[in-house]
Design a protein around this nucleic acid. Structure first.
Lengths: 333, 333
DNA sequence: CTGTTAGCGCGTTCAC
DNA sequence: GTGAACGCGCTAACAG
């Protein structure tokens, strides 16, 4: 395989020679809206087909200084919410002729490296899903005129990025009120990460709504937005048999579902009556009969559409879009 | 945003001027293993930092005729098996300095388009996850010396692609034997797609093993590898109250889990005793207490590692790798 | 509408 | 070890 006959792909020159035209004519034949006569175009296309020619997108991008590629940095593969969002992005982008260059980052530290490399690829935009970018790199992107979208995260710094999130405050408040309205007293909260704006915003609004009703601050554990972490957090919260919560709000559905299963399997608690469990996102799984999870929805399709609109420059001056969701009451709370 | 001051990114020339060296020296400073004196390299790096210079990967790839990018065409976002595999690919690639250009294809027809475009990007390999490629495009890839990997699919055509799959035949046979050993008589099969090699291979081995024991061919329905399709297929298979199956083998775990929930919610059947349900893949969800799904495992990490090894040229002449899994017996069967 | 010309930014000879 | 010169494949600006 190493010393194959070093096949050279046909270039526009080759096609031009075969079709008896100039190389730039070939270029025009492959450029939508270029001025070229139909018959000449046909002849060129025929010659190209014969040779198996395809324009080299790298060369094109080099000239134009930008590629039809969007860099996506992805954090959480475990959470179906983001898988779904990635799917939606792929579809929206495909419709606009954009491609996805995918990076994954397990830690925030690597995000900067990834984005730095994305700049080398002259991507036309960067999307950060569930990860944070340093302001230094945000500035670099701005300097190169590359729009940056933070998906499901916000940032304190102005103009560092366009952010699109669900309505964390409204959602957490709705969950709190629902708990209160159904007479819950010993309420607990399971956070994602402490450095996740999403988790912090949900927590702040949740705590505030409870405090408004004179309740003490909830018990609290950190589930790291993962199933494994959520199981451990549930164990910690319910360890004391004499003082178990009667309601649990988890910062996302993935953790809430893990909590439900742990309560059933390890504590003999059937979520709903004895202890209410609520999540956030309304991932498809939340509606599965095994979980029937009460949650606050984040409309993925809308959120993605807003992000794509921004990238496409179809948006005004707004920097932070909050897409409203709604409380979905099911059997778990 | 449209008429920003049209910022030009610094080039190697700019750095060279600032550092008082030639442009090729700059190139060498950024090329691992190039011969350049340490102090000169330092000076260049300093100048580059000051200017915020990063090599333009597009230009580099244009010269070298290949980019450190692997094209991935992705079919099924709904199935966590593939999400997990994509995650593993991302990690393995990152370790080798490879990037992922992601395409999605809902239909087989679009796969050809996607791959054709990947060729324009001069990708160094193509990975097809759960989709089929026409032999025409496979040939084009071969002509351009671009290795093609079909992940979890096989092809009849020789040398069209490197394929890596789980052990469909052994797995389906193991499930069949397990059903037989536990006294099941009225056995049903839920296929994925009829044009999926994976589904066909599992079906063939499953039917053969049952036939060996003198059982009639199972009842059969098509679940389209989706939750929705699996729910409908389950309804169809269990519609006649007088003749319900006592065992159901689904072509993947995602469908098996949907079947389990449908049996519980709509037919009052608790999988395990009255009716056995088995899947294929051993996705993480299969082990969740709500499902406790009996299944045959496909070791994602191994499969991905084999695929990556092939791309990296660390593999011999083999064209079709079958990675063995094992029967995982849980409560559902 | 068409061909000619001049680069895009960088890696890679090739002399020194 | 270093710089000059060339060219990767293509688009864009220009003249006809």
């Amino acid at each position: 395989m190493s010393d194959a006959p070093s096949f050279r792909n046909p270039t526009a020159h080759d096609v031009a020679r075969l079709a008896g035209v100039s190389q730039s004519a070939v270029s025009r034949a492959f450029t939508a809206g270029a001025s070229i006569s139909p018959d000449k175009r046909e002849k060129i296309i025929a010659a190209a087909d014969q040779l198996g020619y395809r324009p080299n997108i790298l060369a094109r991008s080099l000239i134009q200084g930008t590629s039809k590629v969007v860099g996506v940095v992805f954090g959480q593969f475990e959470n179906p919410f983001f898988a779904h969002a990635l799917d939606r992005f792929a579809e929206e982008f495909a419709a606009r002729g954009l491609r996805i260059l995918l990076f994954t980052a397990k830690t925030n530290a690597t995000v900067d490296e990834q984005v730095a490399e994305l700049l080398s690829y002259k991507v036309s935009a960067v999307i950060l899903m569930a990860v944070n970018l340093s302001s230094k790199l945000a500035a670099e992107c701005a300097r190169s005129n590359i729009p940056v979208v933070m998906f499901n995260r916000t940032t304190e710094e102005d103009h560092a990025a366009f952010t699109v999130t669900g309505d964390n405050a409204a959602g957490a408040t709705a969950i709190a009120r629902h708990f209160l309205a159904t007479g819950r007293k010993r309420i607990a909260y399971m956070a994602g990460y402490d450095d996740s704006s999403t988790s912090r915003q949900r927590e702040a609004a949740f705590f505030a709504a409870l405090a408004d009703s004179g309740l003490p601050p909830p018990r609290r554990a950190i589930g790291h937005y993962s199933r494994h972490g959520a199981i451990e957090a549930t164990r910690a919260l319910f360890a004391s048999a004499s003082d178990q919560p009667d309601a649990l709000f988890c910062a996302n559905d993935l953790m809430a579902i893990a909590a439900i299963e742990t309560l059933r399997a390890e504590f003999g608690i059937e979520p709903g009556a004895q202890c209410a469990v609520a999540g956030f996102d309304d991932i498809p799984m939340a509606s599965w009969p095994s979980f029937s999870l009460t949650t606050y929805s984040q409309p993925v399709a809308d959120m993605v559409a807003r992000a794509v609109a921004f990238i496409a420059g179809e948006t005004g001056e707004e920097q932070a879009v909050v897409v409203p969701g709604k409380l979905i009451v099911r059997n778990s709370a």
